[in-house]
């Protein structure tokens, strides 16, 4: 039984990485670069550690990866009409509800997707999407939890709702606290919590260069929500403790960097020439 649960944990993480690679492939259009983009996240996963439970800290990254993949697929220049039609909205409602059932914090990402389309296409055109991606999943979640909240007399207690739903599963403390020796963990926690902070200013430069790419807004908004969620809901700034934080920080900047390395986003080219045709569509 324990072995089965272990493999479930590893399987969920492997699945997350697989979906991340697919999403990176969608953004970059190159499978090898997609593998390179997801490789640092794969290295950070403590594969040797056996975890006897499939907690929300593992399910949410999977849902987040799927949401990113779908978001990118919806936003691809050639697939602009995908996010229209009754069939799409029915599928979106079903997928969104499943994601929220497995990891309620997915609703934050789904709300970000809706907000993005509201800004991009206008409020009226985004209303059906808001209904299918936010209202229906949130309504389902509310209906399942409301009886329990009512019994406990906490139906109007916002902190209870936050703790029970979107406040959970942003980090993977249980898994990452099993990594390495005690001294190593203490070093990582005490000394390396914010090591990445000074890197972000130069990284902002490569991100800024890619701002006209079609994948820029979905990718960086998705990453921003994952980072912000870790800070707001989990109070976690420690990269190695949260797969969601790793995804939110590593993937967007790595994709921007790969785009730059490919020669499409060099500073000189950006300053002196027009962006490529695919980018101009936005």
């Amino acid at each position: 039984m324990v072995d089965a649960m272990m493999s479930t944990s590893h399987l969920a993480t492997a699945g997350t990485l697989g979906v991340l690679m697919l999403a990176a492939w969608t953004a970059l259009g190159n499978p090898f670069e997609a593998v390179l983009a997801a490789a640092p996240v794969a290295l950070l996963v403590p594969w040797s550690v056996r975890l006897a439970a499939l907690d929300r800290g593992l399910v949410f990254p999977f849902c987040a990866a799927v949401i990113w993949l779908v978001w990118l697929s919806m936003d691809r220049p050639r697939e602009k009409r995908l996010a229209e039609g009754v069939a799409f909205h029915a599928l979106a409602a079903l997928g969104g509800t499943i994601a929220v059932v497995f990891s309620p914090q997915s609703i934050v990402l789904l709300a970000a997707v809706t907000l993005y389309y509201a800004v991009k296409r206008g409020l009226c055109k985004a209303l059906p999407l808001a209904l299918t991606l936010v209202v229906i999943p949130a309504g389902y979640e509310f209906s399942t939890l409301a009886p329990s909240a009512f019994e406990q007399g906490r139906i109007l207690d916002m902190s209870w709702w936050l703790d029970t739903t979107i406040g959970q599963g942003w980090d993977m403390a249980a898994w990452f606290q099993s990594v390495g020796g005690g001294t190593y963990r203490r070093v990582q926690t005490d000394m390396n919590m914010l090591f990445y902070l000074p890197l972000l200013v130069p990284f902002a430069a490569i991100a800024y260069e890619c701002r006209s790419r079609w994948w820029f807004a979905p990718t960086f908004l998705w990453g921003g929500v994952l980072v912000g969620g870790n800070i707001v809901f989990a109070g976690n700034l420690y990269l190695q403790r949260s797969l969601a934080l790793q995804m939110g920080l590593l993937l967007p900047f790595t994709i921007a960097a790969l785009d730059r390395l490919r020669g499409e986003g060099t500073l000189g080219a950006h300053a002196s020439s027009q962006p490529p045709a695919a980018a101009r569509q936005h």
């Binding site: 640092p40 990445y196 130069p202 990284f203 490569i206 900047f253 960097a257 730059r260």
Partner: peptide, 10 residues
């Protein structure tokens, strides 16, 4: 080192 790709790109 986990940010090796963006670092190399820069």
């Amino acid at each position: 080192l986990f940010f090796v790709v963006p670092v190399l790109a820069i």
